[in-house]
Design a binder for these strands. Structure first.
Length: 111
DNA sequence: AATTTGACCATAA
DNA sequence: GTTATGGCCAAAT
């Protein structure tokens, strides 16, 4: 599911769990992403944030939370210690919303 | 078998 | 804005 999140957008742990068919399993999504290396390239782990629109910080992450901020900045998402919260109505991604946009932009097509 | 541990969440103060 | 609390759930103690 994380692979489907487009650049410049973010999704929440809760959303990813629900989309994967496991509503209520937000924590497990976090544990799964924790296993990934910060060098990971095929899975955009940095596009997953908590339900407040903030990066989940933890000393156990060994700085991967800071790296997450840098990568999000590189994709045009303004987040910093001064602006710690991402506006999910602007940058949040919802597959249903994407479908709606798609049918508006390209009617008579099947996604 | 019971307790602890978290990249979580909703609510309350 | 913030912290605290109780709930959640699987895996590891």
């Amino acid at each position: 599911m994380v692979k489907h999140i487009p650049p410049g957008r973010v999704a929440t742990y809760k959303q990813v769990a629900a989309w994967a068919g496991y509503p209520g399993y937000a924590r497990q999504v976090g544990y799964a992403l924790f296993r990934l290396s910060t060098q990971e390239t095929t899975i955009p782990w940095h596009r997953v944030v908590n339900s407040q629109g903030r990066i989940s910080h933890s000393p156990l992450r060994h700085g991967s939370d800071q790296i997450q901020q840098q990568m999000l900045n590189k994709e045009g998402i303004p987040i910093s210690p001064q602006t710690p919260v991402i506006d999910l109505t602007t940058y949040g991604w919802d597959p249903q919303t994407l479908l709606d946009e798609w049918t508006i932009l390209a009617p008579n097509q099947t996604p």
